[in-house]
Design a protein around this nucleic acid. Sequence first.
DNA 1: TCGATCCATAGCCAACGGGTTATCAATTGC
DNA 2: GCAATTGATAACCCGTTGGCTATGGATCGA
Lengths: 101, 101
Amino acid sequence: MLFRTLADPTRRAIFEQLCREGEQTVGTLTTHAGISQPAVSKHLGVLKQAGLVRDRHEGRQTHYRAQLGALAPLIDWTREMGGFWERRFDQLEDLLKRMDQ
Amino acid sequence: MLFRTLADPTRRAIFEQLCREGEQTVGTLTTHAGISQPAVSKHLGVLKQAGLVRDRHEGRQTHYRAQLGALAPLIDWTREMGGFWERRFDQLEDLLKRMDQ
DNA sequence: TCGATCCATAGCCAACGGGTTATCAATTGC
DNA sequence: GCAATTGATAACCCGTTGGCTATGGATCGA
C-alpha cells in the first residue's frame, strides 16, 4: 500500500510539501500542485487511506498534515531486506570457514 | 523510479525472494511467482532498469541477484522527510520559547 | 545434428490510474 | 437571505501497465 501510494510523483510531491511546510489547506496545496483541485482531493484521499496524512476540518476548509509515523513500515521493510542480505552473507562466511578447516 | 518499481506486489515479491534466497535463475523465480515466465522476465527487466537487480548469464540460463545498494535513495528520502519534520518542530519550539519571554 | 530447454521479445488485451469538467453540500461574508 | 468560496464526489477519457500466448534465438544433451 505504501509503495503504491508513494509511486505517483504528484502525490509524492504533495506529501513532501506537507512534510516541509506542515499543515496546509486543499487550496494552498492545489496552487502548488499544478493540477485541478479535484485531482488534489483525490490524491489526498489516497494519502489519507494509506495513513500518510490526517485531515482537520475548520469551517469550509480542510487542513491536511503529514503523518510521518506512517513511513515506519517502509523503513522496516528496507531493514528487513538488508537483514536477509546479511544473513546470507553470514551463511557464506560460515561455509567458507568450514571449507577452510 | 524506485517507488514505482516496488509498487507492484508481484515485482516486490520477486525482489524479496532474491534478497532472501540470493541468486536465482529465471526458471526458479517463475515457479515461485505463480505467473508466466514472460511476465517474470518483464518484471526482472523493470527491476534491472531500476538498478535493483543484476543479471549474470551462464549457458542458457540467466541468474539474477538483488542489488541492495539501490535502496539507498529510498532510505535517504525517508530520512529527508523526517528531517523536514524535525526542522519544523525546532521552529515551533523556538517560537514557543520566544512567546514565553 | 537434432530435439529439448531456457529465456527474451513481440503483440495483444483487459483493468487500473490519474487527469479533466460538472456539480453539489457546506460554510461564510455582505 | 443570497452570492461567493471551499472542497468532495461523480462521470468520463485516455495512457499505462501487468497479464497472457506465440515465437525465436541460444545453448545443452543425446
